[in-house]
């Protein structure tokens, strides 16, 4: 395991011990309203871009 971790770290200055996975995967914070906002805004931008794109791009299915 230790060897594998070292291999993944490769030649960076981070050593094998640095690659402790636990704290990368554990400790999920509760979902917060700002995350809802972030996610919703991304989707809104996607929809706006989609509508504009379908009208503007000459090869879209609308044309």
């Amino acid at each position: 395991m230790e060897e594998e971790r070292k291999a993944a770290a490769g030649t960076g200055s981070l050593t094998g011990e640095a690659l402790e996975a636990e704290d990368v995967l554990a400790g999920a914070e509760p979902w917060e309203p700002i995350e809802t906002k972030l996610v919703l805004w991304s989707f809104v931008i996607a929809i706006i871009a989609l509508v504009i794109g379908l009208f503007v791009v000459p090869t879209s299915v609308l044309h």
Binding site: A46, A49, L50, G53, V56
Partner: peptide, 11 residues
């Protein structure tokens, strides 16, 4: 355009 739409849906 496909990229912008895809990105904002994927992420």
């Amino acid at each position: 355009m496909a990229t912008i739409v895809a990105y904002m849906v994927f992420w």
